[in-house]
Write a protein that binds this DNA or RNA. Sequence first.
DNA 1: CCCATATACTCAGAGTCATAATC
DNA 2: CGATTATGACTCTGAGTATATGG
Length: 668
Amino acid sequence: MRDGQPNKYSNMSNKRPPGEIKSSNQLSVKKPKLSSVTAPTNKKQASVKPEPKAEDDDDDHLPISQRIKKSPTSESKSSSIKKTTKVVSSSVKKVNKKSKKVMKNSKYSKSSKVPPSSGEGKKWNKLEHNGVIFPPPYKPHGIKMLYKGKPVDLTPEQEEVATMFAVMLDTDYMNKPRFKENFFGDWKKILGKNHVIQNLEDCDFTPIYEWHQSEKEKKKQMTTEEKKALKEEKLKQEEKYMWAWVDGKKEKVGNFRVEPPGLFRGRGEHPKMGKLKKRIRPCDITINIGKDAPIPECPVPGERWKEVRHDNTVTWLAFWNDPINPKEFKYVFLAASSTLKGLSDKEKYEKARLLKDYIQGIRAAYTKNFASKDPTKKQIAVATYLIDKLALRAGNEKDDDEADTVGCCTLKVENVEPVPPNILKFDFLGKDSIRYQNEVEVEAAVFKAIQQFRSGKEGSSDLFDLLDTSKLNAHLKELMPGLTAKVFRTYNASITLDDMLSRETKGGDVAEKVVVYQHANKEVAIICNHQRTVSKSHSAQMLRLNEKIEELKAVVEELKSDLSRVKKGKPPLKSKNADGKPKRNLNPESLEKKIAQTNAKIEKMERDKETKEDLKTVALGTSKINYLDPRITVAWCKRHEVPIEKIFNKSLLAKFTWAMDVDPSFRF
DNA sequence: CCCATATACTCAGAGTCATAATC
DNA sequence: CGATTATGACTCTGAGTATATGG
């Protein structure tokens, strides 16, 4: 469903001319003002050395938003993009899907357990916390599901898993055969070989589903006092887990609740969707605390932690192995508002700001390499261009047991279609299986390069066959200390906000300024392709808005008629209003006023309607939380006397405390 | 005050990327 | 020993649910 709708915000764009640079000199002059960016080889910078040609359409330093221009040919784009269902081929692909499944139990020789001591990557000196809290044990409900129409007795364990499935009866997963197969496979193991239940098709879970719905309803019907009491009870229980002591400071813990058991809800076409995610127990959990901190008490009587470590080179407080993918981990970290997280957040933005000093040189360098004879260099250049211009993600290789999604380095031939003379049509599933659709005008050299990368390959093979993220990042690191692909996303998002705010903030009242901010925020969200599904009620809501607008228009018409009649000394056509009250205010002045008021109301509603329609598939939150340097926002608020609370909610304010004292003149 | 809509917050899955281990 | 692959740890994501808001 999410990948269903075309992205109406496709940008046709860009006409940034090649070339155009400052002297190479300038590059090296800029000093990293960043302690955290461990500057490796400053010498390598040579490779960014731009050449002094210049063709001054100097928009190189500008944010993407400004570099993007509507292309003349941008009519009905998205509609026509379709996946050319191609014959899958074994093909060119370097057999690089890691042979993950093999990997015989090379038990991690934990000789390398920890490298702390050296004080080098030290994250903390003292760390104390209370561990994690577990979900309550399963409470059997005894509701019987049906098999071939007859009630079935299930053990609590069997019932628990059946209930996990029943609860999802009204989700889209029921339309996914993969989900059902995986579920049934895991459930079957618990039912046992000779159980009456032999296939899913003959199972009727509706009794359990309905029981669950009624439980939900019951909960909803509780009075506010009851809910409040329940909440306080929970809070009391959890209070001690909410906090940690880090280097003498009390800090909030993020996710101290262990994930409850359930069915795996993989996104997109995930091969493992529906598999049973089993209950985590204390013996699955590894705790990390300071050397002389007391060991957290295990909350389950009679059980104990798997292990207690003292590793101050990491920030996690606890972890367990992901039951779906046992070689992956689930961590408990401090909350976003903590000092530790704030620090690394700040470092992230400082690194992105540093890129500002290098970006011209980097763009010049990759532009030059569009035509490189070295094929790897050429691919790196084009990939970097896409990452910079379109804010694409790096695109790591994925295993076969994950959803099939791509990023820049993993783009397939079929994901990018060149449309002469110089348009590229992108269509692929990115992170979280969110569809990315875009048509972009690119420089001739890029267009040619893409055509070349595609030629002779099948649709399913890699566009950048000589590239992967580590090669790309290794190259980026030579251009700027600490530079990686994701920094471009942060940079382009933040510079766009900064730029749009400074260009578009005019006078006006606070509300108008907030609109300017939201507009910029939206632009960033579009660049980053932050989408959301259209709410179920969206169309109904639009309809209602339209109705209301029509109603108001009718009111205006009547008022106008009243006005003209009153002016002629005649009484209104109707002596009563729609609500049945007799009309008052029959003098022209008040009628005029009323007309103006109503028209203003209509205009406002029209605007609201537009915004709503505009934002129906755009999620603003993600960029605000992860990509926009809060100092831009805070400084802008200070300059324009906008209360910061208009922009940041409570948790954002807490997360961004480190940015609050920024100088009003701060610019990204 | 009630309802519905908007916003805030939680949740856990899905990425990125550095480094260690292995080939 | 250089290149891959595996491991580990951290950020980023939209959905779902709870709560606030406002008409």
